[in-house]
Amino acid sequence: MALFNARVTVTLKNGVLDPQGKAIEGSLSALGIAGVEQVRQGKVFEISLNADTKKAAIESLNFMCEKLLSNTVIEDYCVEIVA
């Protein structure tokens, strides 16, 4: 067993409207920050987990995403081991 530190990112699928992202876009523009094309808001989970191998850790994280961390109707997820 080894301890893995993972970062899971959950974002809205392309094509799903993101009113929060739109509001942030508007606010950036109000601050006078130029050049912003688009903002999409998502969630980041920092997860420490014990697993036999890196592969097993990634499998477990994918399972977490499918079961709970993301709603696959509207969201995509991305799993990475950071340490």
């Binding site: 799903v16 409207l17 009113p19 929060q20 509001a23 709603n71 109707v73 509207i74």
Partner: peptide
């Protein structure tokens, strides 16, 4: 019910926030 998959689709943040 949608989160449990007993009904399809999802309920997102209100468009007006």
């Amino acid at each position: 019910l949608t989160e449990a998959g007993l009904l399809p689709g999802a309920l997102m943040r209100n468009a007006g926030l």
